[in-house]
């Protein structure tokens, strides 16, 4: 009888053990995928450096927002067709296209195509599930929020934090190679959309400058991929990017640094950046960059 009275007291303890058991289970599943990691790579960046470099890959929200702000018309044809998800049967392809679909999702949200996002959201869930990282996306909430265009900011917030947390987790679990591929997928898709949208001057110029600025990002991405270059799939990606780099080498970027000043505007402290960067990129270079990007991206989504 005495023991029965203790049961309610011991239940929370039991629950705690169960929770700990679940967490252990997740870790175990994750390590099952270690075969995807190229641990033997001879040029290996430290995990912290990989995380930092992934963080320096631009968020697709910024490019999509610029396109929308520049009056670029939405184009569904530019996106990776949703049905392609069935073709991705290796973790290499899944990771790359998880990034690609992630960018497409952001693009659709920025343009208020909330209903159309449901299919893409489901693709992101499936690919994340195949890679055993689905725990970073609250799909039920995202599905519900996607029903109204008033919730776009919340959808973007959940998607962004989900991708960030997933990336950190993959690196912690020794699967940094997948984090790098996802990040690369988001970037190349973003660049593909930017180089293929139809627009007119002066908006075209603004977009071209943004494309030219990707020169620095490209260098970082090549460095990241180089960490896993012993994997033939990665070395093929690097070869493709070296072709792209040859085109980006024709872009010049100059910087002029001037001390910033602080002003108080409407009670808010605003830092006025007096420094300037200037991007020089010709129409011919843009055309050749667009061609190489299309080849690379179509290979990824094929």
């Amino acid at each position: 009888m005495k023991k029965l009275k203790l049961i309610p007291l011991l239940l929370p303890l039991f629950a705690l053990f169960l929770t700990a058991g679940c967490q252990q289970g997740q870790r175990q599943e994750a390590t099952d995928l270690l075969s995807d990691s190229l641990i033997t790579a001879d040029v290996r960046l430290d995990d912290d450096v990989i995380g930092e470099m992934i963080s320096s890959v631009p968020n697709p929200v910024e490019m999509s927002a610029l396109l929308q702000k520049s009056g670029v018309v939405y184009s569904q044809e530019l996106l990776n067709p949703a049905d392609n998800v069935n073709n991705y049967n290796t973790n290499f392809k899944r990771a790359l296209n998880l990034g690609v679909y992630g960018t497409d999702l952001v693009y659709m949200n920025i343009y208020d195509r909330t209903i159309a996002t449901l299919r893409y959201l489901s693709n992101v869930r499936d690919l994340a599930s195949d890679l055993r990282v689905e725990q970073f996306f609250d799909y039920e909430t995202l599905n519900r929020l996607s029903e109204s265009s008033r919730n776009i900011d919340s959808v973007l917030f959940i998607t962004n934090t989900g991708f960030d947390n997933m990336s950190r987790y993959l690196i912690d679990q020794g699967r940094g190679n997948l984090a790098v591929l996802i990040s690369y997928g988001t970037w190349i898709e973003s660049l593909y959309i930017a180089t293929h949208v139809q627009t007119v001057p002066p908006n075209r110029e603004t977009i071209n400058i943004r494309i030219g600025e990707q020169k620095k990002v490209l260098d970082n991405i090549i460095l990241l991929l180089n960490t896993y270059r012993q994997d033939p799939n990665f070395s093929e990606l690097i070869e493709d990017l070296m072709r792209l780099k040859r085109e980006f080498d024709k872009v010049t970027i100059t910087y002029v640094y001037k001390e910033p000043t602080i002003e108080e505007i409407d009670g808010m402290v605003v830092l006025v950046d007096n420094s300037r960067s200037e991007v020089n990129i010709s129409d011919e270079v843009i055309t050749s960059i667009a061609e190489v990007v299309a080849e690379i991206r179509n290979k990824i989504i094929g």
Partner: peptide, 9 residues
């Protein structure tokens, strides 16, 4: 509030 004048990392 940071209106950026110089692109970069």
């Amino acid at each position: 509030m940071f209106p950026v004048g110089m692109s970069g990392i």
